[in-house]
Design a protein around this nucleic acid. Structure first.
Lengths: 142, 142
DNA sequence: ATCGTATCCGGAACGATTCCGGATAAAATA
DNA sequence: TATTTTATCCGGAATCGTTCCGGATACGAT
């Protein structure tokens, strides 16, 4: 995740205004320990600093932040989407019990050029996920 | 994708009845050239052989086939979900222009045991996707 | 042929997200 | 500082793929 300053600079570069709603959302995103928050959580948290904020503004802002390359949205059908601040290629470990998402750096980057050469497919984005049960949930339940 | 016979055997093993609706859906799934169909397409196609079929039955059956380990559902937020017959670990190349999904075998299987050892995360399922533009769409448009 | 039960159908319900149009406020300009 | 421009805001309605419901149907065991 970028620093607050870097995000604000990117926002300015993209001609986006620094509204109180937008900054409140950014502050939730950069808060440590709350990785990969969903729109609902961000709404609830941002409301503490900016009580007038609406849920539709949260959604609009998350889309805007995505367009500016500040975050990435992990979309899940049925479930809430989640925000991703780590834009480097990596694997998301998603716990099916507690919902926690952990980043795992890919030791050897898969050779995307080889895929393009073999198939003609031009890669612009990726989504690498392992589903299962995190260490804590495995210990407590089995 | 399993053969028709193998699927029918799996259905019997799991105590599922061989209804005309279910078999019509299976026939759409195993048809070559229509890889990764969505519920809407399956509904439309199955209706040709089984005109009384309902969309809710298609959904119920896709969930049942998933539970029996015959297919896997690729869930997309906003867009239709897609059926996956290849249950081996591989990468899906998803074209953002035409929507086509192509399987790409992973040359070196990522070491899942190492992930478990390092993080305690127990892997039960995976989702590996590259988004971009397939060869055909790249050629025709650029 | 009978029976038990999984499965079916149609439509209502669901829920996260998007869309709308009038109101607001950021920030450029004078 | 006052004015102007325009992105952004809010609240609620709309969207849409999917799930849920209850009564009807038909598979397949006996």
């Amino acid at each position: 995740m970028l620093s607050r300053e870097a995000i604000i600079q990117k926002l300015k570069e993209n001609g986006l205004k620094l509204t109180s709603q937008r900054l409140a959302i950014v502050d939730v995103l950069i808060k440590k320990g709350h990785l990969h928050p969903g729109a609902g959580f961000i709404y609830k948290e941002a409301k503490k600093k900016c009580p007038s904020i609406s849920l539709s503004s949260v959604y609009a802002n998350l889309n805007e932040l995505t367009r500016s390359g500040i975050i990435k949205l992990l979309e899940f059908d049925g479930k809430e989407n989640r925000c991703e601040g780590n834009l480097e290629e990596h694997i998301n470990l998603i716990c099916e019990h507690c919902g926690k998402i952990t980043d795992f750096e890919v030791p050897v980057t898969l050779n995307q050029k080889e895929i393009t050469r073999k198939t003609g497919f031009l890669i612009t984005n990726n989504r690498l996920e392992y589903y299962g049960y995190c260490g804590e949930c495995t210990k407590s339940k089995g």
